[in-house]
Design a protein around this nucleic acid. Sequence first.
RNA 1: GCCCGCGUAGCUCAACGGAUAGAGCGUCUGUCUUCGGAACAGAAGGUUGGGGGUUCGAUUCCCUCCGCGGGUACCA
Length: 711
Amino acid sequence: MASQQIDPGTKPIDLRPLPFEGTWGSASTIARMAAGDIVQKQLDAEGALEGLSKKEAKKLVNERVGAASQELAATLADHIRASGRFASVDAVNGYINIGYDADATTNRLVSEVMQQHDTYGHAAPDSRNTRVMIEHSQLNTHKAAHVGHLRNICLGVALTNISTAAGFTTMPVTYIGDIGRHVIKCLWCYSTFHAGEEPREGISRGRWLGEIYVEAGMRLNYRKDVVDFLNRLIKEDTSLGEGIDRVLKNLWNNDDPVDGEDIAYLLGKVTNVGEIVPDELTDADVMMPFFTLLGDYLRGAAIEAEQSEEENSAAADRYAEWTQLHDTIDWWKQVPAWIDAEKATFQLWENHDPDFYQLWETTRDWSMDELKAIFEEFGATFDVWFTESEVEDEGRAMVRELLDRGIAEISDGLPVVKIDEKLGLEQETYRTMPILRSDGSTLYSTKDLALARKKFENYDIDQSIWVVDVRQSLYFDQITRILELYGFDDHAANLHLGYEFVTLPSGIMSSRKGNAPLLEDVRDAMISRALDVVQEKNPTLALEEQEQVSRDIAIGAIKYAMLARDGNKVIVFDPDEALSFEGHAAPYIQYAHARACRLLERAGVSDADVLAALPETSFAGQIPAELSLLQQISIFPEMVQRAATEHRPLHLTNYVFELAKRFNDFYHEAPVLQEGIDPAVRQARLALVTATRITLRNGLSLLGIVAPEQM
RNA sequence: GCCCGCGUAGCUCAACGGAUAGAGCGUCUGUCUUCGGAACAGAAGGUUGGGGGUUCGAUUCCCUCCGCGGGUACCA
């Protein structure tokens, strides 16, 4: 079979790293690709395929193609070998494996790493000639950040670093939720119940506001929470029907006049396993005595369950939940008034009430201090801080313009864009998006439309990326399409980078109920755990350094956990597992780095020494562990590019883990400083260790993870 | 209903359309007169949810079914 039968026009000459270790080289699949065509043609010419079913024909081709590709690969290998340009050329399994000269290749690689040093793996700055704005870490004021927000911060920081390293001109920005329903709730609760108070000892004002926000939610949702509890009880507790009899009898005998109709209603719902709807009660006050008396039954059930020693804690849980709700049973009758008051507070904002504005500004600053501290700790820096409050008016103006231009219209009393209709789509795709509330107050969409326009108009960017929870993907599709109707016709200009949310082993988390682990708590727990380990492993280190190292390890562990999972996978955040310092996690990688540092320190050689000695350093006679390590170092620049273009830091978390693993393997297989080691080998290995250290550090750095020199 | 995502080892997750589907955890067995044991080596563990299709070749691309999660006009 002659090589000229191959049509180079249709078959790319692909080179890929060899899938096995022990050889410096690349592989090409060209023979396999070409063999398919050739065999097909041959069989056609022979007429061997005639009368065969498609499946049978395929089977025949398949049988022949293996041998044919090997034959072709061998022929091609002979040609390539004859050129004398490669250390080895082999045909294996129909692949052409090209081997390089280990000494020269290694020398070239190591000197590249040594010379570029902190920028090894990076493309030339701004070489992509593309300005990208990355919006991430959209935290809220007046509300505590929880672990779910961590994923966003970690992703945003890593993407920014990686994009910059890959040659993009990157502008990281954030967009702070400093106004909106949550702020109003918090401030209503603050001014009604906590005005003039100071936070308790050891709690920052920002954190205190977060607690007040949670309290506001509990107050405003109290009726709903009680009714939800009752409805769950009706469904889950099958003996409730009998138990409720006593409760209702007590209610009848009570001196308080209660509405018989309501009691009948409640009884009906319980016995028929129906759903209680608060509005169907004629006298809402009946709930308070009813709920109180219900406690007798639940307490009895809990005690009974305990005595029967069944492993059934449901009754106990229910009683505990009841106790919690009952503690504030007097809230029940106040809820409607609170809801009105909260709405009135919203009007204060809308009417630009000066006192309220003052309060808003003051409390906003408290939260901002908190946010700045978080950003600093997690290495997030921003070129621009956008806020929701600053785009409200621009948003309203843009809505007017959309209405004037006929893109938006009034439907059911509020401005909306009927996107599918405007785009002429038959099938329901982007639906209809409301862009302002009927009372004239702004929605997220109002503000995001104005902000998106502002980004392009004021910052001369080519692309705008939103790093936001994947649940917002329809929302951002809608925003993008409206912008398109408005005049931004570059499809790729706006990109929503979604990521799945973070849940607890016990279920979805919500900051409203305050049942999500707070970001600060998780961080503190991680740091304290890290400190314990550092003090155990490295007791001679100065306390100050132990603390610094513990922070680096704890933050690194959190970041790695958040990044080492593809964006479309839900992270089940198990604090115990995240606190584990073993295996596929940041400390393992940091440890490899610290080991390399220690080794070089003991050897007493500096990077400059290694670099200066390179021309006389021989890398001949490498053992497999060395080659494997070098191959991993060599693909770093390629991995950076890939992570950037695919927007997937995951590629780099995998990369640094693999690099650390190969280094540890090398460490065990290839002694450097031990007695009896040939000085030439020692010199080569020191160069290798240095290159590894640099690459590990650079890789971690792109992920936003610090690589301590000792730990 | 419609749209999007996910389904790979007991568990948590990898795998530019390429060679024998890989790691970590867990389980079992080993390696130390240690260049830092937060390490290393080995074993066991798989019909890649089911079924079709495209391809010389499919975990990867297409279709379909099943299961789970999310979204679906004045919530953020």
